[in-house]
């Protein structure tokens, strides 16, 4: 599955409702973008165009804000989002390894890519999530999980994937496990 299919279909009524509720002036730019990203996981072009058309915020202001803040994402996002903390505490306790192992099990090999080919998960780096004493930590959808090794990160993702019936493109452990059990059996007999 390509990322194309992850493009969200924007509901104009919803966007207009936000403009009405949150405001249509420049101070509303960040909260409006936050509302859009909260709904669609990223900032779909169509939603941005609606804001530009129906509020007092012009294109350069809106895109200026959207590209300035790290929170905003212009590319479509997988069905689930994994945020790997790269704050200081997580960095010194091996956060890089969480990315390595997650990318491995999701079979994300291209450095430019952050979403698994089946659209299941997107892996993003973020600054501190505020749980530094249980570093390294990651956030899956809304749950923070800490004290992880690289191997733990894979376990956590597998459990999550099982819960929401997602496939992990890089998960070959089932096959290998079967093979392992076979060889154990042979050894015993």
């Amino acid at each position: 599955m390509s990322n194309q299919t992850l493009e969200a279909t924007v509901d104009p009524e919803l966007v207009n409702k936000w403009i009405e509720e949150i405001g249509s002036g420049v101070p509303a730019a960040v909260p409006l973008l936050q509302a859009i990203q909260g709904e669609y996981g990223y900032l779909p072009r169509d939603a941005m165009d609606l804001i530009i058309a129906n509020s007092d915020i012009n294109a350069s202001q809106l895109f200026g804000v959207a590209t300035f803040y790290a929170q905003f994402r212009m590319r479509p996002v997988g069905r689930h989002l994994v945020k790997v903390c790269h704050g200081t505490a997580c960095h010194v306790r091996g956060a890089d390894r969480l990315n390595t192992s997650l990318n491995h099990i999701l079979n994300i090999t291209d450095e430019e890519e952050d979403t698994a080919s089946n659209g299941s998960y997107t892996v993003e780096d973020v600054a501190c999530v505020g749980c530094c004493s249980i570093a390294p930590a990651l956030v899956i959808d809304d749950d923070i999980i800490g004290n992880l090794s690289g191997a733990d990160a894979q376990r956590v993702l597998k459990k999550h994937a099982k819960g929401c019936k997602e496939d992990l493109p890089g998960d070959t452990s089932k096959k290998k496990k079967a093979a392992q059990e076979n060889s154990n059996e042979e050894a015993r007999s």
Binding site: G87, T88, A89, A127, C128, G130, C131, C132, S133
Partner: peptide, 10 residues
């Protein structure tokens, strides 16, 4: 709380 590695204010 911008310091990445701090959570007092949180």
């Amino acid at each position: 709380e911008g310091d990445p590695g701090a959570f007092m204010d949180r």
